[in-house]
Design a protein around this nucleic acid. Structure first.
Length: 609
RNA sequence: CGGGGCGUGGCGCAGCUUGGUAGCGCGGGUGCUUUGGGAGCACUAGGUCGCAGGUUCGAAUCCUGUCGCCCCGACCA
């Protein structure tokens, strides 16, 4: 391609709409153009990048026996009603765009395709002999994000690769799940990204196991915890860790201490020479479930630790066998609304009486009680006495008459010891989620009544997995991770072009001829080359080449008359003056290294074999 | 939805406090000079000042409403 025909419009000023560097660079380089809030046009340069990512993805998935398809974006409401997601996805803070056609039929614009694919598979696959099936598409997805931001990172229309697998057995699902994990490792490695694979909460989509692939970047929206040896990684929502013993409280005769106006752990410690780890902190939550009821929840945890709301939500959901829509700490305002006034905030103990809830207007009248593992085995502790301004000291669980229900609801944090090796500590970093794999189990097949006949002749629901990659987000994440003051530095495998040849002065025929010769040869050799043939000053061409991040630059300039050109590496900034033979030799060596193997071009070659 | 900010040529911004009919830089066009890191000079085109009301002799500027965008939070297969 010639730059004179590339529609290359670069901006010198940082656009006001963009906040993070990758978003700014994509706009300045002319890769994306905003059409309206959270909706972007992928301009020709970015489309080339996206196609290269797609090729890498398609090839790796094909290697795993995955079939490619293209499913409709407009979907009937019925299947979403069957799976039970229509209401929560379209009402309130739901993310699905929905509409009615002229027949008043309700339709949704697909944010994901579990329903559609499950219906199709259930209509076409009937026997265990036809399983497993692993099928994927690369499609535009729609989500009415509450707050779109950061360009392609969180947009309302975006490109995603989503795959769905169907199995006769749990173990077959698990084997595909781990094959997909490997495929994802290959894909992201080939895209030239620095990433980690971490344990994740499966969230609203449901299911058992789930892992996220995160591109590490300070601007990432997720907090992840990783062990120093790299063997353990998890989203903070899911992370587990070991905590230290804390400062043990001696065992003495239990007694009650007056603690007037001491409501926080800090105030208690400052006034009484306690250590936070000696105190059992009890927090009251209110959980709203999909049966439209509100359940009060009481959680006990060691005073120096924090509660992980996601873990808590999952525990409540498990215990009630209901889906929890929202969970949050009870506020003064809440209890006033309920007409309850006597909850002794600051002095609550694990055995706070259910009687306090008897007057509640909307809430259930009984606390659901949990105790975090951190308090399970404390032999002597301090806790609230359920009366304002009073705490109990030197107490133990035998003296507290209540249900314990031990579970892990503690928020793991940087500095905690790791569960796989107590000598390793967790450190935290931020990540951009570019891939997520799930073992769904039978959640969708059951609700959509998708069954097959097993080898005993009995009908049973499919075991399902689903696997996503945010293609357009990945492209931006690559920029977030690969740039310098001058612009983008694309990894070779996904760069819009691999080499740019600059004619320093278009009016100089020696330079022009030399550049044309190189360009033709590279194109013939299958290199994705760009020729900057514009009648512009050399400086402009250099700036543009740096900004749009082409990995290699060849300049036909001053030394053209002696047959020499300049070869420059965008990333290392190394520049060499070489004759044509040496340039081709050097480039082919470079492209034959590992980097070359990940070039999409290479896939086309191997396809023909 | 809560909090904050902003809407003025294609892009980045000033002007608004104190009303008098719009300006700067970049970008575009033409010409001359320049020619390896976003050139110089001259000329030139391009704006119902987001939109709708209101106040006023007169509104980009003041008032009311409305729409849109950006940031923080809640939320997030």
């Amino acid at each position: 391609m010639r730059v004179s025909r590339l529609m290359l419009i670069t901006l010198r000023d940082v656009p006001a709409e963009a906040d993070i560097i990758s978003h700014q660079l994509l706009i300045r380089g002319g890769f994306i153009k905003r059409v309206t809030g959270g909706i972007y046009a992928y301009m020709p340069l970015l489309w080339k990048v996206l196609k290269k990512i797609n090729l890498i993805v398609e090839k790796e998935l094909e290697n795993k026996g995955c079939l490619q398809t293209l499913l409709p974006q407009l979907q009937p409401s019925e299947i979403w009603k069957k799976s039970g997601r229509w209401k929560s996805y379209t009402e309130g803070e739901g993310i699905m765009f929905s509409l009615k056609d002229r027949q008043e039929k309700e339709l949704g614009l697909g944010p994901t395709h579990e329903e559609v694919i499950t219906q199709i598979i259930s209509q076409t696959i009937h026997s265990y002999k036809q399983l497993p099936i692993n099928i994927f598409q690369i499609q535009t997805k729609f989500r009415d994000e509450i707050r779109p931001r950061f360009g392609l990172m969180r947009s309302r229309e975006f490109i995603m690769k989503d795959a769905y697998s169907f199995h006769a057995t749990e173990s077959d699902l698990q084997s595909t799940y781990s094959e997909m994990e490997k495929a994802y490792q290959n894909i992201f490695t080939k895209c030239g990204l620095d990433f980690v694979c971490v344990d994740a909460d499966s969230g609203a989509i449901g299911g058992a196991a789930s892992k996220e692939f995160m591109v590490t970047a300070d601007s990432g929206e997720d907090l992840i915890l990783i062990s120093s040896d790299g063997k353990y990684g998890a989203n903070q929502e899911k992370a587990v860790s070991l905590i230290d013993e804390g400062k043990l409280l001696e065992i003495k005769d239990p007694k009650i201490v007056k603690t007037p106006d001491q409501k926080t752990i800090k105030e208690l410690c400052n006034n009484n020479d306690f250590h936070p780890s000696q105190i059992i902190k009890v927090i009251a939550y209110i959980a709203t479930c999909d049966d439209n009821k509100k359940y009060p929840v009481l959680v006990s945890i060691r005073g120096d630790q924090d509660i992980n709301d996601i873990k808590l939500l999952n525990e409540v959901s498990k215990k009630l066998k209901l889906s929890v829509l929202e969970i949050r700490a009870i506020s003064d305002e809440d209890i006033q609304k309920q007409g309850i006034t006597n909850i002794p905030f600051g002095s609550i103990g694990p055995d706070l009486s259910d009687n306090l809830l008897s007057k509640a207007k909307e809430w259930e009248k009984k606390f659901i009680r949990f105790s975090d593992i951190s308090v399970a085995d404390i032999k002597s502790f301090i806790c609230g006495n359920n009366i304002n301004g009073e705490h109990r000291i030197f107490y133990n669980w035998n003296l507290i008459n209540t249900e314990k229900s031990i579970c892990d609801v503690r928020k793991a944090k940087a500095g905690d010891r790791c569960i796989h090796d107590i000598n390793q500590k967790l450190k935290e970093c931020r990540g951009i989620e570019i891939g997520h794999i799930f073992q769904l189990g039978t959640k969708y097949s059951k609700s959509l009544n998708a069954t097959f006949t097993n080898d005993k002749g009995l009908e049973e629901p499919f075991r399902m997995g689903c696997y996503g990659i945010g293609i357009s987000r990945l492209a931006q994440a690559a920029v977030e991770q690969n740039h310098d003051d001058s612009g983008i530095i694309w990894p070779v495998s996904i760069a819009p072009y691999e080499v740019i040849i600059i004619i320093a002065n278009i009016k100089n025929s020696e330079q022009r001829c030399l550049a044309e010769e190189i360009y033709e040869k590279l194109i013939k050799d299958g290199v994705d080359a760009l020729l900057d043939d514009r009648d512009e000053r050399a400086g402009i061409k250099f700036k543009d080449a740096d900004l749009i991040g082409i990995p290699w630059r060849i300049v036909a300039g001053r030394e053209a008359k002696s047959g020499l050109v300049e070869l420059h590496n965008r990333k290392t900034k190394v520049t060499e003056s070489l004759d044509l033979i040496s340039v081709f030799k050097k480039l082919s060596e470079e492209f034959n290294t590992e980097k070359y193997k990940s070039r999409p071009m290479d896939y086309r070659v191997s396809d023909n074999c």
